[in-house]
């Protein structure tokens, strides 16, 4: 079903279309990544740190704000990418008929789908960049290795964008995105070692956390922000591309089935 010979760099033309739209509202789009980390750091830094003290993680002692700062960026990458290829792509596909227009040109269905996923990753990376600047200015990011977060954010954005695109390929109506968000995104946001180390979970629950892509993105971000981790870096670096490959293929297959009538 998927035609690999129909994939070329022309997908960048569709990516550019999304960029042009984004530039019209970029000031609004930048507010969330700018303020979100400030809210979290203030709330947890002021409200929580007195109760928690230090977090023992990967053999080092971290303040609670140091611990969650990298996870905040990783969660933002997940949300930005996943929401872009679910709600935003669905609106373009179903309500605006943007894809129908594009598919009457020399662009293939595969290229449209890839463009949407790459765009989601780009938007997620833009958000990660702003958050990195904000959190970096508070000293939560070790430089220069902290900059490695940006290419990793792009990789994570591709992975979550592909997962979102897969759901867009199978979901009957836009309201039903609540389901993957409740069953997939929310548990991941809570149990991926974001707000507490996975090692604090009971032994039976830990493998589930390790299967979450967000866990691996958080681990990689923390590795380069504070220099410690609980999961070997190579496992995370292997897991995310494999997740992307699997959901990328699933997204292409399901979206093609949905679009081509």
């Amino acid at each position: 079903m998927i035609r690999f010979d129909a994939i070329s760099w022309r997908f960048l033309r569709v990516w550019r279309r999304n960029l042009i739209t984004y530039r019209r509202i970029w000031k609004v789009s930048f507010i969330t990544p700018l303020l979100e980390p400030l809210f979290f750091i203030t709330a947890f830094g002021l409200g929580f740190s007195g109760m928690i003290g230090a977090v023992a993680y990967g053999g080092v002692q971290l303040t609670y704000t140091e611990y969650i700062a990298p996870a905040l960026i990783a969660s933002a990458v997940m949300n930005n990418a996943f929401f872009e290829t679910t709600y935003a792509s669905f609106v373009r596909m179903y309500y605006q008929k943007t894809f129908d227009g594009i598919l009457a040109t020399p662009i293939s269905t595969e290229e449209v789908i890839i463009a949407e996923i790459v765009w989601a990753a780009s938007k997620a990376t833009a958000a990660a960049t702003i958050m990195l600047l904000v959190l970096g200015s508070f000293g939560f990011v070790t430089l220069p290795q902290g900059l490695l977060i940006l290419p990793l954010a792009f990789l994570g954005g591709l992975a979550f964008g592909a997962a979102g695109m897969f759901f867009t390929g199978i979901i009957p109506t836009i309201d039903m995105f609540n389901l993957p968000i409740f069953l997939f995104i929310t548990p991941m946001f809570l149990f991926s070692g974001t707000f507490f180390p996975v090692s604090n979970l009971p032994a039976w629950a830990q493998p589930f956390a390790l299967a979450f892509p967000l866990h691996h993105l958080v681990e990689l971000f923390r590795t380069y922000c504070v220099g410690a981790n609980e999961t070997p870096t190579w496992i995370s670096l292997l897991y995310l591309p494999l997740f992307l490959l699997l959901f990328g293929l699933l997204a292409l297959a399901m979206m093609k089935r949905r679009l081509i009538r």
């Binding site: 550019r16 042009i20 943007t98 129908d100 227009g101 662009i107």
Partner: peptide, 23 residues
């Protein structure tokens, strides 16, 4: 197309230019 497949996120001129890009 039979349906309106114009890009509502873009202006009239941008619709033409972005479409030219696809070609």
């Amino acid at each position: 197309h039979q349906e309106n497949t114009l890009d509502p996120d873009l202006t009239v001129r941008q619709n033409l230019l972005v479409y030219a890009g696809y070609f």
